[in-house]
Design a protein around this nucleic acid. Structure first.
Lengths: 195, 195
DNA sequence: CCAGCGTGAGACATGAATGTCTCACATGGT
DNA sequence: ACCATGTGAGACATTCATGTCTCACGCTGG
């Protein structure tokens, strides 16, 4: 059956193309279809066969980002244990996908008129729920809204991804810097809470 | 002397155009020169007379952003008093310029090959110095590098600007949300430090 | 061995944004 | 009233990314 083989090969290629595109577009968000193709090691024609156009490519990247975020959320088990630990797990799970998220985060500003993909709304909601849970349990302060904490999480992930990309932060410090600032802030703590 | 009048008028118009462009490009970073012109209430021809091209416009916006940041730094007196208070003043001074900064922050990712304007380096350094001072005085924790705290400040300002623009955060909460997260983090504090 | 299929390379048309230019109009100063 | 200057409107050529198409090559399976 050549059909099975066809499908499987296409899936592999498609994934590889998407990841190359994500890596490139994160660095240069205005990259040409031709550049994207070259970055993926294929011709513009083939790229265009798999993704009808630039728009379709970005949509596919968005879908990939949503899927990865949902997988990360699944793996982080945000409902389990202390909320602070859940946030740590979440950031750790998000870290590998931070460059793609950084790209999508800024690209989304560009979807102006249209309503954003409902996938993001679900993800936002789950993250906000985590912060809400932490507030309800008394772990987190209540003067910062869950929506803002969610937004700040995205912003810090993007900032960290760029800072790492430009060599201003060591890659190994990514998770620590992000999660500690998000949870603890810059001020020195007087208490001796663990970790 | 018509020459004096000419110069003064141009300066006023130029400033107005820049601010309109900043407002528009913050929302839609791919806006056309024609859209920019319409947003400023002038024709494309006049816009093109004041700024040689799109590139020159962005450069001018960058210069404006740098000037405003330096003015904000000046007004915030980052070397005076407790570092935490200085950070509060700094964020408060930055707030009005946050949309423009958000635009430039993402646009800078796009200056790929070229070295960034030295103005930013100076500003970065002054902000990093503030965090360094806070660490030296024992106010701030030392496991987060000044470079990262500076980067995070930009990221949070941009996130807050977008969150406000999309109605996810109330405008009046901008400063509080940003500065509190940056300084104090999400975790509830056990100590009773002021404010 | 050959038939089918995906691919790369390139030609080509299209559309959009840009940069340049001209001309008519209004305003402001002399 | 006259002249100069800045402006708006629009025509125009140019550039560039895009989308579409064709064709030859190489592989793989029958």
């Amino acid at each position: 059956m050549s059909h099975m083989v066809y499908t499987r090969l296409m899936a592999v290629d498609r994934d590889h193309v998407l990841r190359s595109a994500a890596a490139l577009l994160t660095r240069k968000s205005t990259a040409t279809m031709d550049e994207v193709a070259k970055a993926a090691g294929i011709s513009r024609a083939t790229l265009h066969r798999q993704f009808a156009g630039r728009d379709a490519l970005v949509r596919a990247l968005e879908a990939l980002g949503i899927a990865e975020c949902e997988a990360a959320l699944e793996a982080a088990r945000p409902e389990e244990g202390p909320a602070a630990d859940a946030v740590r797990r979440l950031v750790a799970e998000f870290e590998p996908h931070a460059p793609l998220l950084a790209f999508l985060y800024t690209e989304n500003q560009l979807f102006e008129g249209e309503e954003q993909n409902e996938g993001w709304t679900r993800i936002d909601e789950r993250i906000a729920d985590l912060f809400r849970r932490g507030q309800a349990s008394g772990e987190f302060r209540i003067d910062l809204t869950p929506a803002w904490l969610t937004e700040a999480l995205y912003g810090l992930l993007a900032s960290a991804a760029w800072a790492v990309a430009e060599g201003r932060v060591a890659p190994k410090d990514f998770t620590h810097m992000t999660v500690e600032l998000l949870l603890g802030g810059a001020r020195r703590r007087n208490d001796t809470s663990p970790r």
